[in-house]
Design a protein around this nucleic acid. Sequence first.
DNA 1: ACGCGATGTCAAGCACACTTGACAATGGCC
DNA 2: GGCCATTGTCAAGTGTGCTTGACATCGCGT
Lengths: 64, 64
Amino acid sequence: MKNRIKELRTERAWTQADLAQRVGVSRQTINAIETGKFDPSLPFAFRLAKLFNLTIEELFLDDQ
Amino acid sequence: MKNRIKELRTERAWTQADLAQRVGVSRQTINAIETGKFDPSLPFAFRLAKLFNLTIEELFLDDQ
DNA sequence: ACGCGATGTCAAGCACACTTGACAATGGCC
DNA sequence: GGCCATTGTCAAGTGTGCTTGACATCGCGT
């Protein structure tokens, strides 16, 4: 499951730590999700989508 | 995180086992999600939304 | 070249998503 | 009342989402 998090984060000139703090997870979690180690939980995905003003479908790409 | 799964499933006259088979999880998992025991994973949420022809935001209600 | 912030990554641990197998409770139908 | 499909729920196990702490590496500015 790909995502546009790194792209949207760097657009805003936020560090991984900045973003982590905004959505309430650890920096390592942001890094792991950006580098495709695992997918976020559903509530966490909602928080990210809300932060970037996107739908979950726009933020996460379902490549099955 | 509330969801409309039970409502949409019964509309279609599917059993929990029917739905489970369609999205590739166990019946107990469907039951647990309908009864609010836990939230589905993000890829699983995508499969459910796709099956019901809804967006994730329409299927899952973010009550934080 | 050096320092330093940002990023990538590892290990160990905890909580939860999901499994199979089993059984009790519900509810409609004969 | 009795049968049977459906649903709810428990236990025990596996895998993954997420944590903290630590350390290596990658720019980039000076």
